[in-house]
């Protein structure tokens, strides 16, 4: 008993010294920072409120070079372009420090054009939006329902590396559920990603 108690104390001491946590929104929470204007790759300034869809809103924290982003890129863009046409608002947000190699505004413009983005790709200039969402890595998917409440958070699907071996299409299933007025069955998932390089 004594050993457990002292170890718990030690862990608490270490945790206080070393662990930092970000405020994160949970399933059912409302959109945050929806009125923050961010610079889009077309030069305009866009907020999440500006692009909200009647069926829901898809927010993806992403970047230009993370290998996990590259793995999922084609699927993320295809889903985004497809469901934008079906009534969802879509926005991709880059919260990385722009001095990170490959994450400059010009790199974003080039990347969006190359990959056929039909939705805003914006710069989170202070990384504050990512911090208020609790986004810690790229890619990180947040899907809100028509009422602006978080309905799904997590991965695009269950296999970034091998699209042909995907068994669970989490994001697509969540989008389809919201589109048809159903509850999202799997609301939270996890995937390995690149840490967001906060400013």
């Amino acid at each position: 008993m004594k050993k457990k108690y002292t170890l718990r104390l030690a862990i608490s001491a270490v945790a206080a010294l070393t662990i930092t946590s970000l405020a994160a929104i949970d399933i059912g929470d409302p959109l945050v920072d929806a009125d923050v204007k961010m610079r889009n790759v077309d030069g305009s300034r866009v907020s999440i409120n500006d692009i909200k869809g009647e069926k829901g809103t898809l927010v993806i924290f992403t970047c230009n070079h993370c290998p996990f982003v590259i793995d999922w890129q084609a699927r993320m863009v295809e889903l985004s372009n497809t469901y934008k046409e079906k009534g969802f608002g879509v926005i991709f947000i880059n919260s990385n420090d722009s001095t990170t190699k490959g994450d400059s505004y010009e790199d974003m413009q080039k990347f969006a054009k190359e990959h056929g983005y039909q939705f805003p790709y914006v710069v989170d200039e202070t990384s504050q939006v990512a911090q208020n969402f609790g986004a810690q890595k790229t890619p990180d998917v947040f899907l809100f329902d028509a009422a602006g409440e978080l309905a799904y958070h997590g991965a695009v699907d269950d296999n970034g590396r091998n699209p042909e071996h995907v068994q669970e299409t989490y994001l697509k299933d969540a989008l389809e559920a919201l589109l048809t007025g159903k509850k999202v069955a799997v609301q939270e998932t996890k995937a390995v990603g690149c840490s967001i390089k906060l400013r």
Binding site: K190, V192, G193
Partner: peptide, 22 residues
């Protein structure tokens, strides 16, 4: 070198891990 970078892998290390590296 992890051959399975899925949710099971993440939760084997920690239920609290977001999956971010390092």
């Amino acid at each position: 070198i992890a051959t399975e970078l899925n949710q099971a892998f993440i939760e084997t290390l920690s239920l609290n891990w977001s999956g971010a590296l390092p």
